[in-house]
Design a binder for these strands. Structure first.
Lengths: 299, 299
DNA sequence: TGCCAGTTATATCCATGAGATATGAATAAA
DNA sequence: TTTATTCATATCTCATGGATATAACTGGCA
């Protein structure tokens, strides 16, 4: 038997004998009989090429080589146990790094409390948060810059999987001075002749088209007087009377005094907050995160 | 299979697959067929409780847990190899510490060059040298303060083994002014009426008795006027004309102008320079030293 | 001196399981 | 669709780890 024939079994047995200095007690501790223990120790000694234990039928002692190997084998056994623990913790998704991309409006939902809960449950996962527009987030997911993304109305992509977390109705946002400002609800075609301030189309083809289709159902094409990249900007502009906008319902959370949010009656198109990730190769880390996300948004 | 069922074999196999990312090539590298390799990897995954490799029949990839285990298993395999190397070096007696005790007169023989040669051959052995009288050296050997001793005419001790390295004839040392000073050789009974300066009897019963027997063969009991613990002291005293002495032949190496060394004709008692050590449990380190000592003194 | 007790080594047998061979299943490329 | 590649499954064989029984050795004790 050469070195490649040495197994952890030999080290476990040797450590037991070296610690007990007694084959019988060591065998008991290992839950095997004494003769096979003697045999395995002999094989180890043959593989190493030197005696490790001096036995006369009255006492067992370690040779110098045996003392050295005892010290090192104890280390090795401890190390292997630790290695397995550590591997299991990663396997359970308890340790590691997870980069989560999100669009700004996702932070207007239960996402913040979900992230908070995740940190509580998995304190040893380093959670990196990065804000994107949906289109940029899809790129980031594809090239691995982000592991999981919260997107809105993402375009379908091969290699990326998306699932709807939260379907939100659209609302109209108008200036507080606007004639429609105090209505409980309006119909989309009430806005046909209004100037529009809309989210920039660069954020995603699909998101843009949903708004266009909504207007189309009202029988008009919106007259766009301004585009802007953030809902806060858009709401401020709407507040000045520059125009009206159509937004997912969650945006009402950041509505201020100068604007009013009005429900859109009869609209059957929804804005979708989605969970997006690379289809293949979900780690346990990612699975754990996804599971919590689904649970949180289901309510 | 739980953790105690994990063997180095599993780690070796896993590292091969994880490095090759290909079961077939890994199996070749391990000189086994592919199916048993797959089986062993599966067992390892079951023991750990998490998948380590993601395989679809086109490619093999590591999971996060797999990457962790790969890194750690590589370390473990390297460590075990180093442990065995290190153990073997100690087994070969190439590393360690050896305490050698000796009597002063041993340094008048080939011992110094033997020690020099030993250091050349075993540079990683720390050689500790301690000077004793024979009786003290035997104590030191018994209680483990010294591992190997160079003694002279040691008393027999159970548990200590002694072997003769160098039988030396006795010589007479007289003052340069002494009537016998210029004889090529004398007989022991030529000294019958001389005053004697002798080595202290405390150094050992046997050594003392040998000198007594030598005188007895000359038909007299020596008249001892002085005892001293070092040959250099004795020779100085002899040089002053205080008396004569009987010494092992090697002492002539430190004879100075005021004394003369004279061969003793017809004496058949020899002083023995010996090698002494605990009988049981000679380490390779000690064996190597003893072998070189025997070789050196044989010449 | 010889017997006893305690301990390790040896002999032999059995059963587990590591590994081989043959084949199936899955998937990407042609 | 076919083919080539690759991993998994099924089955068999044989090596070997472990059990049992016993021998050999050694120190203590009568």
């Amino acid at each position: 038997m050469d070195i490649t024939g040495i197994e952890l079994r030999h080290l476990r047995y040797f450590v037991a004998v070296a610690e007990e200095l007694h084959f019988g007690r060591a065998a008991q501790r290992l839950h095997i009989a004494q003769p096979p223990l003697s045999q395995q120790i002999r094989k180890l000694e043959e593989a190493i090429g030197h005696p490790l234990l001096l036995r006369n039928s009255r006492q067992v002692r370690l040779t110098g080589a045996g003392e050295e190997l005892l010290k090192r084998a104890q280390q090795t056994l401890r190390k292997v146990a630790e290695d397995i623990q550590s591997t299991r913790r990663i396997g359970r998704g308890e340790v590691g790094t997870l980069t989560v991309g999100f669009i700004a409006s996702a932070m207007l939902t239960v996402l913040p409390s979900m992230l908070s809960e995740y940190r509580r449950r998995f304190p040893e996962v380093e959670l990196r948060l990065r804000e994107f527009y949906t289109s940029g987030l899809l790129d980031a997911l594809r090239n691995g810059t982000a592991d999981i993304g919260f997107t809105r109305d993402a375009d379908q992509e091969k290699s990326l999987h998306t699932e709807v977390l939260l379907p939100e109705p659209y609302i109209a946002v108008v200036s507080a001075q606007h004639p429609l400002a105090d209505k409980a609800s309006i119909r989309i075609d009430d806005l046909r002749s209004e100037p529009f301030v809309l989210f920039s189309p660069g954020v995603g083809q699909n998101a843009w088209e949903k708004v266009m289709r909504l207007c189309q159902q009202g029988g008009f094409r919106p007259r766009i007087v301004q585009e802007a990249p953030h809902w806060l900007t858009i709401l401020r502009l709407v507040g000045t009377g520059m125009g009206v906008t159509i937004a997912p319902k969650c945006v009402e959370k950041i509505a201020h005094q100068e604007v009013r949010c009005v429900r859109l009656r009869g609209a059957n198109i929804f804005s979708h907050l989605e969970l997006a990730y690379r289809e293949q190769s979900l780690t346990e880390l990612e699975e754990n995160f996804l599971t919590l996300a689904r649970e949180t948004f289901r309510q």
